[in-house]
Write a protein that binds this DNA or RNA. Structure first.
Lengths: 222, 222
DNA sequence: GCCCAAATTACGGAAATCCGTAAGGAAGTG
DNA sequence: CACTTCCTTACGGATTTCCGTAATTTGGGC
């Protein structure tokens, strides 16, 4: 199993919880923890320079800003910077995020090795994830692998996303028309926008624009 | 310090984190933990019957439903039931909730003894809260006492949240009126709902309902 | 070129939203 | 009690949404 692990998590209680699991349930000896991305990066860098590098980084995604000014504001920044120096370090993300496409993005763009969702089964999932990643696997969470979670995936093109973005910003359809024409984006008639949005209502079983935006916000599509 | 404490928290990692703090930082000997309200209540009841009662209950508010059917679905239910049997038990709530009026309600309606907000300073706050409650104090969190936290927070009451929820579900104002009247919730005129929502537009600088829902979704208020 | 399917556009009407003004009611103060 | 203040309620009108039908354009295959 891993010997040397770095944990980055700003919520102290969760931080301590992870430490306890790594110590008690997995039996990892050398664990360091950080409450800020920058702090985590410094510990990582020092260990790397001392030729006593970490084998695994476990990090949250969102770090609440506070009085300390940080250059890195999210776990994504941390992962990028760490991987730039030590490309082979294993990375497990431990986060609240449960939206499949958001999680998939982490695997595709950042090549993370595992993901664990904060939740009721987090200990078992974390232990299994550690095991899998140690053996070289890529460990997807149930939120992504379960059939039920994947079935209702609707693929939207860029224009759909654009419309949803503008609607979420509170623009009326007429205002969107104006904006599209100004930016020379087609189609740009009010009628077509109506039709496209009506199709989105259908796809997402939305009753009206407000409902639609609420749904796609929850899905993390915008 | 307290000798016998019961911890109710459904997220395993947070649960373990609390245990670690209570053990390592406070030095409490006898700690029991539960992942469900009903489970917590059973442990409490057994200890009470065995004349070896808990002195303190630390509980979360929201418990995510899963396959196990529960009669108690929130920490509030748990607190009520526990206090009905053992009125003098101390209660500390440990929750995500940071809205001042929600937290105040817990002190006023349930007479809880302390509140700790899940966050970056949770360990220090929890330790201080334990100390204070042990000495008979009522320990309010910084979220309630600090001026700075209250100023830039738009405090929404339950009715506002209710409206936002219904709007996000795609109900029209007329449908909301019907629902409110059916559930005997006042106020329930279309005009008042209009006014309330208009005030929310003002508060959040929203252009229309869709924009408003997008904003409060982003803020995580609903 | 011709035909077809799909997408875009135009238009109209019932319903809902948004935003005024104004009247009625409850609670607190002197 | 009179007065103020805040909240609720009623109502109307301009704008927008939502959802039809129908005409027009686009793109591909033969």
């Amino acid at each position: 199993m891993f010997d040397k692990v770095l944990v980055a998590e700003d919520y102290e209680i969760a931080n301590q919880g992870i430490l306890k699991v790594l110590t008690d349930d997995v039996g990892i000896q050398c664990i360091e923890e950080a409450k800020y991305c920058d702090e985590a990066f410094l510990k990582f860098k020092k260990a790397h320079q001392d030729e006593n590098a970490f084998e695994l980084l476990i990090t949250d995604l969102s770090f609440k800003p506070d009085h300390k000014v940080q250059t890195r504001t999210s776990g994504i920044d941390l992962i990028k910077d760490v991987r730039a120096i030590q490309p082979d370090i294993k990375v497990i993300v431990y986060s609240q995020e449960s939206r499949p496409d958001k999680i998939n993005m982490l695997f595709e763009k950042l090549n993370i090795n595992g993901y664990v969702c904060k939740g009721q089964q987090a200990i078992r999932e974390l232990v299994q994830c550690l095991q899998g990643v140690y053996e070289g696997e890529t460990v997807l969470p149930p939120e992504v692998t379960d059939r039920a979670n994947r079935d209702n995936v609707i693929d939207l093109d860029d224009f759909d996303i654009l419309l949803l973005d503008e609607l979420a910003m509170g623009l009326t359809k007429r205002e969107i028309v104006v904006k599209l024409k100004k930016n020379k984006i087609k189609p740009n008639s009010e009628s077509t926008i109506d039709k496209r949005v009506a199709k989105l209502f259908d796809d997402f079983k939305a009753k009206n624009t407000t409902h639609l935006v609420a749904i796609v916000k929850d899905l993390g599509l915008i």
